[in-house]
Design a binder for these strands. Structure first.
Length: 275
DNA sequence: ACTGGCTCCTGAGGGC
DNA sequence: TGCCCTCAGGAGCCAG
């Protein structure tokens, strides 16, 4: 298992780490070094942000919402994005694409080697933004439940794993946790979504919740790392049971973990535990 | 309405 | 040591 990409727990860990460090600060200057993220970084940022107070940081799906006095900066970390708070006289690192300098001499730097991430700006309700408005329920909210999954999945022929990763069904379940949750729920990832029972969906909901909550709890232990040290959020050390373990024995039954592709994504499962 | 496939990008890792 | 190839992936987008 290599470095983990930001899934929902990492984004929430980032939010919890960053918010207390930046809330209340006032922007002095914004520098865009490379606007070439998933979509161009809005070039009005250096004009509109200075002078504005950052009130809070919230999260919807894997988007971080930086609530300023007169607008919201919407940030997606993509595959390799991360945020670091540093002192503005410290050296910029390779792939530091956007810098938000505050009046107290600190700077929030957005680093993203693959540039799959995004920085968007809106002066309207961010939850109504084009990127957010169609999203499904938060996995840790009561709106994510077996009844909803069951209803949405009827007549769907798509495999349950890509179904679970569809942000219109539920947000924040990425490739790693999709495999892990299906393993814990004892559901074969290739099974058609429409053929899965309500009872099995109930197990899946519990598995998704448990895994995300454990990862958030584990990730939250090294929040101090946010201030100019490792430059990495506290990536959780939760034990992965199937992801990346092709050919290794299942931790439950000893059968060899299988790997396949579903929806162009690597998928790991135990044939014996997930029928 | 669904479904599968393509795309963006860089870095890691394997083979030779 | 170094080069080249393949793979990895979030999620928007599009064609069938």
């Amino acid at each position: 298992m290599r470095a983990l990409m930001p899934e929902l727990p990492e984004v929430e860990t980032t939010r919890r780490g960053i918010e207390p460090l930046v809330a209340g600060k006032v922007v002095d200057r914004v520098v865009i070094h490379n606007a070439g993220l998933r979509w161009p970084v809005p070039d009005e940022l250096p004009e509109v942000l200075p002078g504005q107070r950052l009130n809070s940081v919230s999260r919807r799906s894997k988007y971080l919402l930086f609530h300023f006095e007169h607008g919201t900066l919407i940030n997606h970390l993509g595959m390799t994005g991360h945020l670091r708070l540093a002192y503005s006289d410290s050296a910029r690192r390779k792939h530091d694409h956007v810098e938000i300098m505050f009046t107290d001499g600190s700077v929030l730097r957005y680093n993203d080697s693959r540039r799959f991430g995004a920085m968007l700006w809106t002066i309207d309700d961010p939850l109504q933004h084009q990127r957010l408005v169609g999203l499904g329920p938060e996995p840790l909210s009561p709106a994510f439940n077996e009844s909803g999954l069951f209803r949405l999945s009827r007549a769907r022929k798509v495999a349950v794993k890509p179904f679970l990763m569809d942000a219109r069904v539920v947000v924040g379940v990425g490739n790693i946790y999709a495999s892990e949750a299906l393993f814990r729920a004892g559901i074969n990832p290739a099974c058609q979504a429409g053929k899965i029972s309500k009872a099995a969906y109930a197990r899946l909901v519990n598995a998704v919740r448990t895994i995300l909550e454990e990862a958030i709890a584990a990730g939250g232990t090294t929040i101090r790392d946010f201030l100019d040290s490792q430059g990495r959020p506290g990536y959780f050390r939760q034990e992965l049971r199937v992801y990346g373990r092709a050919g290794l024995p299942c931790r439950t039954c000893g059968a060899l973990i299988k790997q396949c592709r579903l929806g162009q994504r690597s998928t790991y499962y135990c044939e014996r535990c997930q029928q």
